[in-house]
């Protein structure tokens, strides 16, 4: 996506949503859905659209774990770290995932394929451990099933 189409996308989203009550989160979701992240240079446009300061917009983006200001990999693995998953061995799974991908949390693989983010509960606690990739949720994830999923998604294993 070129710089000008990015700006256009951001402007369209702001124009569509700015008259909602409490419009900032819907706008940020809209931008992240469209672009995969919220480019820092979109902050002035958002601030102007909502009559806020840039600091206020930046403050909101940085408060919420889900919003990111850098592009993610092609797939983002959200691995659950919460108690239910821990009770079913997620600490060992976490170690496996980090080794397999060669990255830590909040990092992206060098080939740009995968980002890794922790998540605190996916509501899938009846089938722990759990992870989410895009809108897909996976339950009873083991080291083996994780490897299979990565292979299906086109990782160079």
């Amino acid at each position: 996506m070129t710089a000008s189409t990015t700006t256009e996308t951001v402007q369209t989203i702001i124009a569509e949503l700015k008259d909602k009550q409490g419009a900032l989160l819907p706008i940020l979701h809209g931008i992240q859905n469209a672009l995969g992240y919220i480019p820092p240079d979109s902050v002035p446009a958002i601030a102007q659209g909502l009559n806020l300061s840039r600091a206020e917009v930046h403050g909101v983006i940085s408060f919420y774990h889900y919003f990111r200001d850098t592009p993610a990999g092609k797939h983002t693995v959200h691995l659950c770290r919460a108690e239910s998953c821990q009770s079913m061995g997620s600490n060992a799974l976490e170690a496996h995932v980090k080794t397999k991908l060669g990255i830590d949390y909040h990092e992206t693989t060098a080939d740009g394929q995968f980002s890794l983010e922790p998540v605190y509960c996916l509501g899938n606690c009846a089938c722990s451990p759990a992870m989410q990739i895009g809108e897909e949720i996976y339950g009873r994830v083991s080291a083996d099933s994780f490897d299979d999923i990565m292979n299906d998604l086109g990782a160079d294993a």
Partner: peptide, 19 residues
């Protein structure tokens, strides 16, 4: 929401709804 556990607290939730 956007991945903030504390927004399950009702006043924090309202702040979030207000943007």
């Amino acid at each position: 929401g956007a991945g903030a556990y504390v927004c399950g607290e009702e006043t924090s939730l309202m702040e979030s709804l207000e943007g």
